[in-house]
Design a protein around this nucleic acid. Structure first.
Length: 456
RNA sequence: GUCCCCAUCGUCUAGCCCGGUUAGGACACCACCCUUUCACGGUGGGCACCGGGGUUCGAAUCCCCGUGGGGACGCCA
């Protein structure tokens, strides 16, 4: 049995797209599942649109998501180079084979691939021009996901541009042959191209790889496939927003594939064990930001405390308010642990914990109006101040006990103190437990804030 | 317009291949419970087999036709 060799072949012409990430993922999963080789090949034949910046985005995103390649740029391999811009000599060699076989001709300075069959001219209404059709048998694609697909490729096509640069269809097939690719796993948008590729494989007289065209990811709202301009389309964005890569990966796995039972959250090693091409769905999947957010939350919730703090620190280091938040490492840690069970993603952290790190936090006007307009808030605050002055703030349980005792002594409930205390120390009515906030903020900050609200 | 692909709750999907299920799960939504806020969690609820024809005792499941959605029709990839 031959070793599986798959490739992910992005072109560095734009930011790394979520659809590309999933194509990479399915290739990577298949390689890992079969013990095969995952190859990264850069398709940079379009000199106009390539950029080094985008190349680094590809490397960075794959690394962030944890998809390591076995052969490719930076690490090399037996079939290199892995950037098409460096493989000119190989394409020249293969072009000679096609020329020798009489399968090419020149027209308008470009080199065309010649199909075999009777020719006739036809006016194409859609393209508003006369084209030469060739009578050929349908190309048969035996697809691991779609089954047998037939398509008639009935027009010659350019394989080398007039500027001498080879075209995608040609280099893609040549490299798949030269790199001994066994399985071509790519987006379904390539299905109509595949007949061209089939004809090229046949012209080279080599066996065809196995094809697997995976469904596309559709826009969350509106028609069409996810495009680079859509909200949530770029991998870099998730990285910036502090999503956990393992959560994104898990979510991506489930877009078009499932383990066959009701499991959704599952470690990648389980996905690797269960993943197979025939298990991939045929229909396109719509992107769902809320489901991703939920997945991220479930991963966040089960992160060990130190892991959560470490990742939160990484996240804050990239935020404008990061320096202030990280000034006291131990304090930062305590605040983060208060927030961990409450948030869906790191991106909520700056707003959710901001008041811990500055005395200059904003007070929600509506909440203030509501809380201060009811009962005797200033009396409650004064009582709280007296309590906090001497209370033991070292444990949540102790603080809770003290608060309850105070409330009971005045014939009131915990809630009568909570809302006003919350407003004073955080400026809002949502957040971690009030006892946790008191404990972490400490006597000095709490007293100052309670006092300010009384005065204000 | 031509060609190709697809079609189960609003969304991701199980079931389809090998016809017989109260059509299952998850996200979202609603209600209730838990609760010192907000979340988490728990319980319950509403929500789907695109339409029409076949085949069959019986169709989400097999076939055909519609319709709808998606993709491709570049000297882009």
């Amino acid at each position: 049995m031959s070793q599986v060799r798959v490739r992910f072949a992005p072109s560095p012409t734009g930011f790394f797209h979520i659809g590309s990430a999933r194509t990479a993922l399915f290739n990577w999963l298949y390689a890992r599942h079969t013990g095969g080789t995952f190859i990264l090949r850069i398709e940079d034949t379009d000199k106009e649109r390539n950029s080094e910046e985008f190349l680094n985005v590809i490397y960075g995103s794959l690394n962030w998501l944890g998809m390591n390649w076995d052969e490719g740029p930076k690490i090399g391999g037996a079939f290199g180079p892995y950037r098409q811009s460096e493989r000119g000599h190989i394409y020249a060699e293969y072009l000679e084979k096609l020329k020798a076989a009489g399968r090419t001709y020149e027209k308008d300075g470009a080199i065309w691939f010649k199909l075999l069959g009777d020719r006739h001219e036809v006016f194409d209404e859609h393209r508003k021009k006369t084209v030469t059709k060739v009578k050929v048998a349908a190309s048969v694609i035996d697809d691991q996901i779609r089954g047998r697909v037939e398509r008639v490729e009935d027009e010659d096509f350019v394989i080398v541009r007039s500027d001498g640069n080879p075209v995608f269809h040609f280099v893609n097939v040549v490299d798949d042959i030269a790199m001994q690719i066994t399985h071509v796993i790519r987006g379904a948008d390539h299905l109509p191209n595949t007949s061209k590729h089939v004809e090229l494989f046949k012209a080279f007289g080599v066996p065809m790889p196995t094809f697997a065209h995976i469904p596309l990811i559709l826009k969350e709202n509106g028609p069409g496939k996810m495009s680079k301009r859509d909200q949530g389309a770029l991998i870099e964005e998730y990285q910036k927003r502090g999503f956990l890569p393992e959560a994104l990966m898990n979510f991506l796995c489930l877009l078009g594939w499932n383990p066959g039972d009701d499991r959704e959250k599952m470690p990648i090693v389980d996905v690797i064990r269960l993943f197979d091409l025939p298990g991939v769905n045929q229909s396109d999947a719509r992107f769902d930001a809320k489901k991703l957010a939920h997945m991220n939350m479930t991963y966040l919730l089960e992160l060990p405390a130190e892991g959560f703090v470490a990742r939160a620190k990484e996240f804050f280091q990239k935020q404008p308010t990061g320096a202030a938040a990280l000034a006291d490492e131990n304090y930062f840690r305590e605040v983060m642990l208060l927030a961990q069970p409450k948030i869906k993603g790191f991106e909520e952290l700056p707003a959710y914990t901001g008041y811990f790190f500055t005395e200059d936090f904003s007070i929600d006007a509506k909440v203030r109006e509501k809380v201060m307009g009811k009962g005797e808030p200033k009396v409650r605050l004064a009582e709280l101040i007296e309590l906090i002055k001497t209370a033991d703030l070292s444990s949540d349980a102790g603080i809770e006990e003290a608060l309850k005792t105070l409330a009971a002594s005045k014939g009131l409930g915990f809630g009568d103190y909570q809302s006003v205390a919350r407003l004073a120390v955080s400026g809002t009515n949502v957040g971690p437990s009030i006892t946790g906030m008191f404990r972490v903020l400490g006597r000095e900050r709490v007293l100052a804030r309670l006092g300010r609200l009384v005065a204000g």
